[in-house]
């Protein structure tokens, strides 16, 4: 696994018209799990959407060092599922983006789709339309879609949402498989417990500043803050 940065932010300023941040310069390396923390409306989602190429940066730039097309996985806040299509169809969208054209392409796509569905434990729902599933099951479908995609960088916006612990364990277990293969993860997270259990680094946004900490530094800082 190369240790070259997958994502580099170079004096990046984000926002819609008015800047939401001071210039940000950070790097993400393969296998890192970064949780972005901060209060609502401070620019967490805007940062994710900017990296996903959906919002233009106000100034500065970012570089994605992806080896192949479809190397970026994205789970938006509302999950981005095709509600009227089946679970299998939704998951296959992930497998569709980066399998090169060949005779075995369709077979490979099918295998990746069903492997992701099995990993997330939704094989009994594979032929059901997504709109009939519960919120937790839908989050599992969105995760399976990214798993089937096997991206090098996964962006997720509060994708753990209000999941119960069982679902959190299933989803994080699946994402852990991606990380083992070198996928880096940048996720917006509201629950500090999830960040503490899963992330390797924290980007905390305070007054337009991005504070970059290892998970140990952040735990130490929060425990010191609590003691005071």
């Amino acid at each position: 696994m190369s240790n070259e940065a997958i994502l580099s932010l170079n004096d990046l300023v984000i926002g819609y018209g008015d800047p939401l941040s001071e210039p940000i310069s950070l790097e993400v390396k393969p296998g890192e799990i970064i949780a972005i923390l901060g209060p609502s409306g401070i620019g967490k989602t805007t940062l994710i959407r900017t990296i996903a190429g959906l919002v233009r940066p106000l100034s500065g730039s970012f570089t994605l060092n992806l080896e192949r097309r479809g190397g970026l996985g994205y789970i938006p806040q509302r999950l981005g599922l095709v509600r009227h299509a089946t679970v299998a169809h939704n998951v296959s969208l992930g497998a569709r983006v980066n399998i090169p054209w060949s005779k075995t392409m369709f077979q490979e796509r099918k295998e990746r789709t069903y492997e992701a569905i099995r990993t997330l434990g939704i094989e009994d729902k594979a032929t059901e339309p997504v709109r009939r599933l519960s919120g937790g099951q839908q989050r599992r479908v969105a995760t399976a879609r990214t798993l089937a995609q096997q991206p090098q960088l996964m962006l997720a916006d509060e994708f753990l949402g209000e999941l119960d612990q069982t679902n959190v364990d299933i989803v994080l277990g699946a994402v852990g498989k991606l990380v083992e293969n070198g996928t880096a993860i940048v996720m917006v997270e509201h629950h500090e417990d999830n960040a503490k259990n899963f992330a390797t680094r924290i980007w905390e946004i305070k007054e337009k500043q991005f504070l970059d900490m290892t998970i140990e530094e952040w735990i130490e800082q929060t425990s010191t803050g609590e003691e005071e």
Partner: peptide, 8 residues
Amino acid sequence: EAGRAMGL
């Protein structure tokens, strides 16, 4: 947006 970001 998910489709676009994923590279479809």
